[in-house]
Amino acid sequence: MINANSKVLLEVRDLHATVGGAEILKGVNLTVRSGEIHAIMGLNGSGKSTFAKVLAGHPSYEVTQGTVLFDGQDLSVLAPEERAQAGLFLAFQYPVEIPGVANDQFLRLAYNTVQGHRGKEELDPLEFDDFVREKMKLLKMNPDFLDRSVNEGFSGGEKKRNEILQMALLEPRLALLDETDSGLDIDALRIVANGVNQLSSKDNAMILVTHYQRLLDYIVPDYVHVMEAGRIIRTSGKELALALETHGYDWIHANDQATGAQP
């Protein structure tokens, strides 16, 4: 929901980033306020997943230019865990499997770490068990997933649900959902989208990184951005996603030529 008076959560200015010496982000600008849902769309290789990883602090990416302020704080000086503790969350496109670590152990460790940093009470295993089972209902997850190793042997859809479960537990102020819709069948997509919608509030914000419009049928964005070659070349309302779905990404350039607009 757009409210021009709500607080700016994320302020990205002229962000450039490289991986292995290659520049992927070439001047990204973006402002996200509390309560807003943004979608970033674009072709593979346009830089949208890189943008999400850079915001979360992936050590393989180097910011070479520009600034990112999260709630007024310079993100570049924060380690990934400090960003998480400050309220940033990345739902991974490819959640990592961690054999040998029970999912409930991992979830409780993450929850208590973040709670501790927020000066809130940590939960013992029994208290946490009740708490997490309640959250799992939101995503129609089988409690058996608590006893299994983190993401090990999970289907694509189960991994994505486990990501949203973590989001539900950690209650981030800004959630980055990196291709959360990929690999989901339509039922799973509905469940995940429904979970995300329930977690959305006026006090938090979300950035959905996606290739397809499909997800946006279920999670309705306030803004749709199109990324190409490491920059956001177009920003509009949710109707932009539908136009892209109908006409394809080339349509933007054809459209630009017809109107004489500069991307």
């Binding site: 602090g57 050590p59 380690a79 991992f106």
Partner: peptide
């Protein structure tokens, strides 16, 4: 895997 865990708040 390290980044995944750190992105969930765990220290390095």
């Amino acid at each position: 895997s390290l980044f995944y865990l750190r992105s969930r708040g765990l220290t390095e």
